[in-house]
Design a protein around this nucleic acid. Structure first.
Length: 816
DNA sequence: CATTCGAAATTTTTT
DNA sequence: ATTTCGAATG
């Protein structure tokens, strides 16, 4: 390809970038025709996409619905800016949220533009770019350029120290809680001075702000920052040094932001400062896929874009290239129930395809069985298992499904979970390296001083701290002193001496040993690998392998500091991508992915939408849950299967559940209500025929019939409720998704749920139930009980043994 | 100081 | 049910 020929030469790395002069631009345009940058990269785009690529000047908001080619627009836009000579790669700022997204974008740009695009030094996550900027100007914000970036666990340990140092009872005011307060403040761009007094009062009787300040002071002393600081300190840097800000405003001629709906206030301020000068900012996002409100994302940022950037061009990408018409309409119909949205209408030219199926199961175990069977059927039809995903609302749902996959022998992989670099063994190993390379890294030293156990417990650490504070020296230096003095008892003293000797040896070895070999040596000599080798728990083996992988990955870096920098921001477990596997993940983890077939279990009130989201955030919470449902559905290219169970075990006890309101909200014409598979459906449930539909939107109460069948199936003698014996014996009220609202005044814990503008827990029909208050009924799982209240076809029953639960009337029998 | 037993908590997750 | 955390115990 000759695309790269006419590109301007990228400036040397580190060279400060100035805008192209007019003559340079003219020169670029005057290149002979056959050497002119190829524009064929534009040819595959539709009109809107093309507009989004070619509207290079001024603020642009691209509202890109699911599957509308968002990433393609972003990468093509970058290619376009480079190919037309409007900017050098180093003059473009492109921010993403995850390292994965950044990596993908880099690859795709390189593919479009060729070697010339490889530069892209400013393509990365907010945090990675923030780090890069801060390292250059560290001294202006009171840091040294080799500052450490704290992970969550380091942060917690530090907070614990701060709380204790302030003489606050750490048990009453846990570090975790303070961490989430501080996180929230940092997300909103608030320094200790900016925190509204009312909010600080919520922690430790109003001492929240002081603790926040003390924590920040400690960080400075340690020459460390946490993730939030990577953005906040940039803000401070720019505000206090307008010349520095201007330097970056000049440098970044064009700015692009991916997943704009996920930006928090701090990120928004960060962007706005940069964009103020040139205003060539292009934000791509989808308000309907905003699912991170709970961690500080502000949908408002996207809803108010044209207000914040006057004259903004808003481009809607509404043509979906991913899903069939039925799936798309189902998802659109659902999301249309949200009020706070900019509004898009997704359309497709794809065939209608299969309807979205909705299947009721008796309980979550049967739900897992049905999913397993369906996947086996797909597999025997030669469908690729890598194109199949099961998306759950909460991780706790995974276990049952995994269990089923294991017994069926279905290969699967779990996506998400703790990141590689968050794992304890990796953090420990890194702490050893940090403590070796940076003797003043107190946090690292403290982390491993007694890991593996070497008799240096709380008492010894307290002594170290006391001396370190008294002499104002790092812990390591305090240790050297204590080894020589007799303030420490002989046993720990001997242990500490040998540890210090080891560190000395490693530090000497650092001069001449390749860093990955040194790491290997440290892990062995310290007894760390032995510690895991001796542990006989199931995951010990995996941890050892992670450590090996860590050492192996170090080889790719020139030296230890380079590696430490990399690891503090990035580090992914390597994928064993050889075998075809079903993917299992949370809905959150699924954003941005797509699969031929998607299974969506657990669509039940309380679980999805999550009761907690409703209780804590009211209508906004409900809408975020609905967006989550929308994200789930739009992951599917050809087949989407929704499931709900009528009974689910929550925290160990069984709970009756009712179908999610989201099921009712799906347009009827795009949904196929499934019967339970033959093996589990028993006789025809004639007595349920003609019964009032649960949801008024259904002409035929099809899913209810399916449910009834499932109930019949479960009625076989082997499944007798008395045999199961799984329900709560305490009768202390029901412990499920519905408990919060129905608890008596004596109930502890959660606040009452908010009723959301007439949207009750689930729609009810208002049609009379065949039962009356006071009637005795028999439930398969909960046994006998008395009807306490009736709401349409939903009964509130006081079960003799299982306490009060809400059940569908079709699940109980009259028990005269 | 380490181990062990019992009570309490238990969404979603990136950097 | 399971895991995690803290206090009592050896």
């Amino acid at each position: 390809m000759s695309r790269a020929h006419a590109l301007p030469t990228p400036p040397e790395a580190g060279e400060s970038v100035r805008p192209l002069t007019i003559s340079e631009r003219a020169r670029a345009a005057a290149v002979p025709a056959d050497h002119r940058p190829a524009t064929d990269y534009l040819s595959g785009l539709n009109a809107e996409q093309r507009q989004a690529v070619e509207t290079t000047e001024g603020p642009v908001l691209v509202l890109a619905g699911a599957g509308t080619g968002k990433t393609r627009v972003l990468t093509t836009r970058i290619a376009h800016l480079i190919a037309t000579g409007l900017a050098w790669p180093s003059g473009i700022l492109a921010v993403t949220f995850t390292n994965k997204a950044a990596r993908e974008m880099k690859e795709r740009v390189a593919h479009l533009v060729g070697p010339a695009g490889e530069g892209m030094p400013w393509l990365g996550t907010f945090h990675a770019i923030g780090t890069k900027i801060l390292r250059r100007h560290a001294e202006l914000v009171g840091l040294r350029s080799d500052f450490t970036i704290l992970g969550v666990d380091d942060q917690l340990r530090l907070l614990k120290q701060v709380i204790t140092a302030e003489n606050i009872d750490e048990k009453r005011w846990p570090a975790r809680q303070l961490a989430s307060f501080i996180d929230g403040w940092k997300n909103r761009g608030l320094t200790p001075k900016d925190v509204p007094p009312g909010e600080a009062a919520a922690f430790a009787n109003g001492r929240g702000t002081g603790l926040y300040q003390a924590y920040q002071d400690r960080l400075k002393t340690l020459n460390a920052v946490d993730f939030g600081d990577l953005l906040l300190e940039c803000l401070r840097l720019w505000r206090e040094n307008p010349d520095v800000l201007e330097q970056y405003q000049q440098r970044f001629r064009y700015m692009l932001v991916d997943e704009y709906q996920d930006t928090n206030v701090a990120q928004y301020l960060w962007l706005r400062l940069l964009a103020q000068a040139r205003k060539n900012v292009c934000c791509v996002g989808d308000d309907d896929q905003s699912i991170y409100g709970w961690r500080g994302a502000e949908v408002d940022n996207i809803l108010r874009f044209d207000h914040d950037f006057p004259g903004a061009v808003v481009i809607r990408l509404e043509r979906n290239y991913r899903s069939t018409a039925h799936i798309l309409s189902a998802a659109s119909g659902l999301i249309a129930k949200n009020k706070d949205r900019l509004g898009k209408t997704l359309r497709t030219d794809d065939e209608p395809g299969e309807r979205v199926s909705v299947t009721g199961a008796w309980d979550s175990e049967e739900e897992a069985r049905q999913i397993g069977e369906e996947i086996e059927a797909l597999h025997s039809r030669k469908e690729n298992l890598s194109e199949v995903a099961v998306l759950v609302r909460i991780s706790a749902q995974m276990r049952e499904i995994e269990d089923r996959f294991v017994t069926l022998g279905l290969p699967y992989r779990v996506i998400g979970g703790p990141r590689f670099y968050e794992r304890a063994e990796i953090r420990d190993a890194l702490a050893y390296l940090r403590a070796t390379a940076q003797p003043a890294d107190d946090l690292a030293f403290e982390r491993i001083v007694n890991t593996p156990k070497r008799g240096l417990g709380d008492a010894a650490v307290a002594l170290l701290h006391a001396h370190a504070r008294r002499a104002r020296v790092p812990l390591m230096q305090a240790a050297r002193y204590l080894v020589e003095s007799d303030e420490m008892k002989p046993a720990p003293r001997r242990s500490l001496r040998s540890l210090m000797a080891q560190f000395d040896r490693w530090r000497t070895a650092m001069e001449k040993t390749p860093h990955h070999e040194l790491a290997q040596t440290i892990l062995e000599e310290s007894g760390y690998t032995d510690m895991w080798a001796k542990e006989k728990s199931a995951d010990a083996q995996g941890r050892l392998e992670n450590l090996k992988e860590l050492v192996r990955s170090m080889e790719e870096f020139p030296d230890l500091p380079a590696f430490l920098e990399h690891i503090s921001l990035v580090m992914d477990a390597n994928e064993d991508g050889d075998q075809e596997r079903v993917s299992l993940m949370t809905l959150h983890a699924a954003k941005g992915l797509e699969f031929e077939t998607v299974f969506l279990p657990g669509w039940e009130e309380g679980l999805f939408p999550s009761q907690r989201a409703l209780d804590e955030n009211g209508r906004a919470g409900l809408e975020e849950e609905r967006r989550l449902a929308h994200v789930g559905l739009t992951r599917a290219k050809r087949r989407a299967h929704i499931y709900f169970a009528s009974n689910r075990r929550i925290h160990g006890l069984w709970n009756a559940t009712i179908p999610s309101r989201f099921i009712d909200e799906l347009p009827e014409e795009n949904v196929e209500v499934r019967e339970a598979p033959a093996a589990y459906s028993g006789r025809t449930a004639s007595r349920f025929e003609g019964m009032t539909p649960f949801a008024s939107s259904y002409q035929t109460p099809g899913w209810q019939r399916a449910q009834a069948r499932a109930a019949e199936a479960a009625r076989d003698p082997d499944n007798d409720w008395r045999g199961g014996g799984g329900f709560s014996e305490n009768g202390s009220g029901f412990a499920g998704p519905f408990q919060a609202g129905r608890r008596g005044p004596g109930g502890r814990g959660r606040p009452s749920p908010q009723l959301i503008e007439g949207e009750v827990l689930a729609k009810s029909t208002g049609s009379p139930s065949p039962y009356e208050i006071g009637a005795r009924v028999l439930h398969l799982k909960f046994g006998p009980g008395t009807v306490a209240a009736i709401d349409g076809n939903k009964l509130t029953v006081d079960f003799d043994k299982a306490g009060r639960k809400m059940v569908l009337d079709s699940f109980v029998d009259a028990n005269g």
